[in-house]
Each structure stands twice: as C-alpha cells, then as structure tokens.
C-alpha cells in the first residue's frame, strides 16, 4: 500500500495520474486508487476515472478520523473483489498519513505486506504553508518514507535549495526527490522509489 499525502493543491492528483500510469505500464501491476476528497461530492476521483484509472471514492469526511472505519471496509472489499497488487490512497490534503497507518493496525483482513507513505510538498507555496500550518506539515514530513518536492518548474534553484534544507531538518534520512508532476520532470525516479521493495 502506498499513501500519497500532501497539502491541498500540492499536486497529489497530477502526480498520481502521472506515476500510476507509469507503474502500470512498467510493471503490469493491478493498481486500485482510493481517493478521499474533503468535499461532499468528490472531484479528484472523478478526474482519475476520466483518465482510465480504477478508483474507489470516499467523500464527505476525512479517512484519518471520521471515515477510518469506512476505509478499512473499503480496503477489505477491494482485496476480496479485485485482489490488486497495489493499493494507492490519496487522502485529503488535510489528512495525517500516520493516522492512516495507525488505522491499518485495525485492519481485519489479511495483513498488507507493506505500507509506505509519500508526501508531496509544493515548493512554490512551502513558505506560506509552513508558516500557517507548521506542526501538521512537520508531522507529515517526519512520518514520510519519501518526500517529493513538487512544482520545481515554479521556483528558482536557490528557493528549491532552501525548501530542501528546511525539509531535511524535519526528516534527514528519507529520499527527497525534486519533481514537476506537471512537466513530468523526475517522475521516473520517483516511481523507482515508490515501487522499490
């Protein structure tokens, strides 16, 4: 299982569209995406379906708290009926991915082999988001297995270095890859880390 977290508008959907298509092409894996949109009617899941991805939508709440029970049921249904090789969860931009990992400890089905989380950081808006939401953003990064610094096409190399340095103070040891999901920059490299065993 792969959790793709990140603040609102950080580019999660764009990255999932780009990366998952590559994973399917490259490995032939059967991938199901669970999309949790905050709004009562989801938009991101519908967009992914339009691009041909297999999506289970969970709207009207957040899977790291109020929809936690529904998430476990949804995963069990997917495991029983689709038997995917990989489940990708795109939670709302407000979710704490570590809470989803905690929730999975209560999963009643066959234990999943591995749960990894990738956090997407918007390089262009990092200073303002960090200032407004310091603690939750730090938690997201601290608990991530992979940090993808997105929208590098929108910042200068100096600004990118500053973002990376700040992120390294939160989590020094994980891979950090600078990407542009929009321009397909370094997405192959990100996919390599996502699918690494």
């Amino acid at each position: 299982m792969l959790i793709v977290a990140g603040f609102l508008g950080s580019g999660k959907t764009t990255l999932v569209l780009s990366a998952i298509s590559r994973i399917i092409e490259r490995t032939g894996k059967k991938v199901v995406i669970i999309v949790n949109d905050f709004g009562t009617v989801g938009i991101d899941g519908k967009v992914m379906e339009k691009y041909g991805l297999k999506v289970a939508e969970m709207a009207s709440g957040c899977i790291c708290c109020t929809l936690g029970g529904d998430l476990l049921t949804t995963i069990q249904d997917i495991e029983d009926n689709i038997k995917p090789d990989l489940i990708v969860i795109e939670p709302t931009g407000l979710a704490d991915p570590s809470a989803i990992v905690d929730a999975m400890q209560h999963y009643p089905g066959k234990p999943l082999e591995r749960i990894r989380s990738a956090v997407i950081i918007d390089a262009a808006r990092f200073p303002s988001i960090y200032k407004a939401l310091n603690r939750p953003l730090t938690n997201q990064v601290k608990n991530a297995d992979l940090v993808l610094i997105n929208k590098i096409d929108a910042v200068t190399p100096d600004a990118l270095s500053m973002v990376e340095a700040e992120l390294r103070t939160m989590n020094a040891d994980v891979p950090m890859i600078a990407v542009s999901a929009l321009n397909d920059t370094n997405i192959d490299e990100a996919v390599d880390v996502m699918v690494a065993s």
Partner: peptide, 29 residues
C-alpha cells in the same frame, strides 16, 4: 448547497484508533 443536501443523510460516527482522535481539530463536516 451540497453540504446542506448531504447533512440530511446519516453520517459515519468518528472512529477513534487507540483512543485518539487523530483529527483533534477536525469538525465532522
């Protein structure tokens, strides 16, 4: 107003894992 339309539907109760509400500052929509 979709929130209003959906507020008449039954909603899931918050689920606490290990007794912790991870969205401590969340409302329920």
């Amino acid at each position: 107003d979709l929130d209003e339309a959906h507020s008449h539907e039954p909603s899931s109760a918050p689920v606490l894992f290990d007794g912790i509400d991870h969205c401590h500052e969340h409302d329920d929509g």
